[in-house]
Design a protein around this nucleic acid. Structure first.
Lengths: 330, 330
DNA sequence: AAGTCGGTTGCACAAACGTGCAAAGGAATG
DNA sequence: CATTCCTTTGCACGTTTGTGCAACCGACTT
């Protein structure tokens, strides 16, 4: 795909160009003449430098201006929040896109050599995967958190495409999880979990340094991938509704208060249990759009989130609603 | 100087603007409408954000492309080098300017809360001071390394201006060193060094975490500040020339082999001795222009440098000459 | 109230930049 | 050697961005 010789010389140029442009504020014209090429090539070199993570731009607020919403969330839920500013009237698609761009950057700062990261799939994870900033790591692994096959399609292409993008962005090994999202019979799951190949993977999931996931919200305006991809049938939906489920993390369902006891579907789900998730040091949850608020509240109540990346409108709504609930009359 | 109220709101806007611009690649036009202001204001907000260090851009080469010259220098001298790319035909003034810009950035990554940094003065230190990227630190101090008064002027304005810029960039306390650069009588120096106020400062110099300095080169094409500012008379110059001096660090002179024994002027200099310098963990030397090569070689031989920031032409020349000297015939 | 001064705003223009496109390599294949 | 296919290059154009300038704003003085 990439000729290493060309790559090196190209990258070397990109590196100098980036130094001259970002560190010394030269114009591209000036850089072009130093590099004996055209200005447009320099423009392209710089894009290349940005895309491949040669240039690392970060914006950090000085201590004296803590970000209001992030602070509120930290206080209310005891987690670290990254609020992505998005204008309120933005459509859900754009909103997700912009949160995904930021999430992708932030993930780059979380992940490093000798680490393993578990990832779910779904529209959020997919959106992020398209914006990951490459970063060279050694001895690192990306592990799929839950199966993706379903009665209609294998779903494997979809899930493995996401997985693959994470893997190649970080130069990490990838571990697919070749099982259905939901089993028809819980016994099959139990049996499969005893298979050494699968058991190995499940064991890896318990050793992860980071988990990254979006949230599913079954009954909200914008249904998530799981709920429209043919993974669940009418009976399943009825059962979810009956149990009072408000959302899912990696195809594990929970109620608004964070509980999951008695949710029948979870016994058949390939996702890691909520208790397994809670054993992972850093659990990054990415959420865009207020339609996911109920699901988000449930996830927070369940304690599966340590780091939340969310758009400003949703963050504000979350804080407002929570404050209102906790102090019913003022 | 700055109204805190305005500052906060302005900085808050700058912060969002920077997020939207650098982290989400929106155009300034788009940001302007989100912030309900004009596009040009956004442009200015972003400048503000960059100047005040809200945005932090760094360029780092991937492992597989080590930078040739930096590696060579590391191998030859056992120090960390930062080579600033500058086209070869650049004039000395521009060269210094560009090295200074990079040096200023790099210093920002070295210095932090609870640290103390010693700084010399001179054209290099002055150039750097004009490009420092602000960074909030607590409980940190900037200490002047050597006196600046001379028979003609107090020199204090010049030196304290530099000192002040470092201090305010990092929000650090500044410690002036109110003594002449050179004493007429070594006895006066000794006496003054016994004064508690001065002794306190000299003691602080021994506790520094970082020292930053340029190099003086007395007999090269472009003489440094010390040599034209009226600090030295004809007899002094003669004495330096006789002793075989090739340069100075913070008004402490040395020979090409790094030795300083018997250099009469050093007994009268207010600068910290070479042995004091060597007691500081990180000694950052900033050099621009090949005319400083002899002086640079001496400083390296003297072992006063742990981190070198230098332009590419000078770095190349340094490496070439050193290789030639060490392997006289091949 | 008129005046003055430092600082901010938007406009307008020029400079700098991104990108579609056609042409030019350049490697593999027939 | 011709052909094909893919990548890279520079040009040209439209877009995006920086900045001098005049107008404006608020605060404080006379």
């Amino acid at each position: 795909m990439e000729d290493p010789g060309t790559l090196t010389s190209r990258t070397r140029d990109a590196l100098t160009a980036a130094q001259l442009y970002y560190l010394q504020d030269l114009t591209m014209e000036a850089i072009a003449s130093e590099l004996h090429t055209s200005r447009s090539s320099v423009s392209r070199l710089l894009s290349h430098a940005r895309e491949t993570g040669l240039v690392d731009i970060r914006v950090h607020s000085p201590f004296d201006i803590p970000r209001q919403l992030e602070d509120d969330i930290a206080r209310l839920f005891g987690i670290v929040a990254h609020v992505v500013p998005v204008p309120d009237q933005t459509g859900d698609a754009d909103r997700l896109e912009r949160v995904a761009v930021s999430a992708a950057r932030i993930l780059g700062t979380f992940f490093d050599s000798n680490m393993s990261m578990g990832i779910a799939w779904g529209s959020t994870m997919s959106a992020i995967s398209r914006h990951l900033v490459p970063k060279a790591t050694q001895n690192s692994t990306i592990v799929q958190l839950n199966g993706a096959a379903n009665p209609r399609t294998t779903g494997i292409l979809y899930a493995s495409e996401i997985l693959e993008r994470y893997g190649s962005a970080y130069g990490a090994h990838v571990q697919q999880f070749p099982v259905p999202a939901f089993f028809d019979d819980p016994e099959t799951k139990a049996a499969l979990w005893r298979e050494r190949s699968i058991a190995r993977l499940v064991a890896m999931q318990r050793e992860l340094d980071i988990a990254v996931f979006g949230l599913g919200s079954p009954f909200a305006g914008v249904p998530s991938h799981v709920y429209i991809g043919g993974y669940l049938d009418a009976a399943d939906f009825a059962s979810l509704s009956e149990s009072g489920v408000v959302g899912d993390v990696a195809t594990v369902f929970y109620r608004e208060d964070g509980s999951e006891d008695g949710v029948a579907l979870n016994a058949r789900s390939s996702g890691p249990g909520i208790s397994v998730l809670r054993g992972i040091a850093r659990r990054v949850c990415v959420v865009a759009g207020i339609s996911k608020i109920p699901s988000l509240k449930g996830a927070l109540a369940a304690g599966v989130v340590t780091d939340l990346i969310v758009d400003s409108a949703t963050a504000r709504r979350l804080v407002d609603e929570t404050l209102a609930e906790r102090a019913p009359a003022s």
